[in-house]
């Protein structure tokens, strides 16, 4: 049984880590990007960002003043049991969100869409979002918080099979060029792309591709992995860098996730995470153990399964 107290305390710690500590994979990716950037202003911006990450950690202060919209992904091993059940879990995550907003502090960004009323704690109707996934075996839960930034840098389009790869390239470029001007997408960023599903599923896939996969990860389908490489190079060849200045750093990495869709369509979504790619993860066990990490490891073979039945592959039994 995983205790509620442990869940809430861990969730508060995750909120702080996400807001303050840039994940190592993104930091390495940004350093690699900075190393090849030759635009004067773009280079200055990237160096300032690298200094900013250090300042945040030294001062234990949020990386960015816009601390985004905190959200939660909960992945449960099939054998996990939670004290009080899922209702108690959700209450603990809402309490942790409100408390961490005050204590860190985070900006209380969340308001009612029409009345603009504000609880000053990032909690409200539908906020924070809590999404779930499950894994075979496992007596643990993974708590993942993402503080997604940016009002800009996300778009959706219904493409069709006849649009093909050329149409995918076009919409990818359209999104980066449109949102990259003046740096509104807060680039260079991890760009997530959703392909297929339905409109809502496509948006979810793209957002998860941006927020729940690390820099350097590749889709398990080698042809999709090749497209990820191709689009990363394409995005960095626009001639645009950080803040929309002349340069070549738009995409720290490009991650694509797919879902089966209607035979006539090819939905596509594009999501830019931001320069403060805020995510933090912890695995909690019933015996009270907690392990922190920055890789959500969301897209397992199980999450990408395409068969009716699922059996754990023989060589993965030891991890199950």
């Amino acid at each position: 049984m995983i205790s509620l107290d442990l869940i809430q305390r861990t969730a508060e710690r995750l909120m702080e880590k996400a807001a303050i500590e840039i994940p190592e994979d993104y930091l390495d990716g940004l350093k690699a990007t900075a190393a090849v950037e030759d635009g004067d202003l773009s280079s200055f911006v990237l160096q300032a960002m690298l200094e900013n990450y250090e300042a945040a950690k030294e001062d234990r202060r949020a990386m960015c003043g816009d601390t985004g919209c905190p959200r939660w992904y909960v992945k449960m091993g099939n054998e996990a049991r939670i004290e009080g059940g899922p209702i108690a879990l959700e209450a603990a995550l809402r309490r942790a969100t409100a408390r961490a907003t005050h204590d860190i502090p985070l900006r209380p960004n969340r308001v009612h869409p029409l009345w603009r009323t504000d609880h000053d704690n990032n909690v409200g109707i539908g906020a924070p979002e809590i999404e779930y996934g499950f894994e075979p075996g496992g007596d643990w839960i993974d708590l993942i918080t993402v503080h997604k930034g940016g009002l800009f840098g996300t778009d959706y389009r219904m493409l069709f099979p006849s649009d093909g790869i050329q149409g995918i390239r076009r919409f990818f470029l359209d999104s980066l060029v449109a949102f990259g001007k003046r740096g509104l997408a807060c680039q260079p960023a991890i760009i997530g792309i959703g392909l297929g599903g339905s409109k809502d599923a496509c948006m979810v896939l793209g957002k998860r591709a941006a927020c729940l996969r690390t820099v350097g990860s590749r889709n398990s389908d080698p042809r999709i992995a090749a497209l990820e490489d191709e689009l990363k190079v394409l995005g960095n060849s626009i001639g645009m860098g950080a803040m929309g200045f002349v340069g070549k750093s738009m995409v720290v990495d490009c991650n694509i996730e797919v879902g089966y869709c209607h035979t006539g369509g090819m939905q596509m979504s594009v999501h830019a995470f931001c320069l403060s790619s805020r995510r933090a993860v912890a695995r909690l066990w019933g015996d009270g153990r907690v392990e922190y990490r920055t890789d959500p490891d969301w897209f397992t073979d199980y999450q990408r399964r395409e068969t009716v039945e699922w059996t754990v592959p023989q060589d993965q039994n030891e991890f199950a």
Binding site: A55, M63, C64, M243, S276
Partner: peptide, 29 residues
């Protein structure tokens, strides 16, 4: 601003809050 998101660097440059006006009506943000 630079980045965007040199929030920690900018935060270091703020030595204090002199006043907070219209908070009740407008909220913290």
């Amino acid at each position: 601003t630079v980045g965007y998101g040199t929030g920690a660097l900018l935060g270091r440059g703020i030595k204090g809050v002199k006043a907070l006006h219209w908070r009740e009506d407008l909220g913290l943000a």
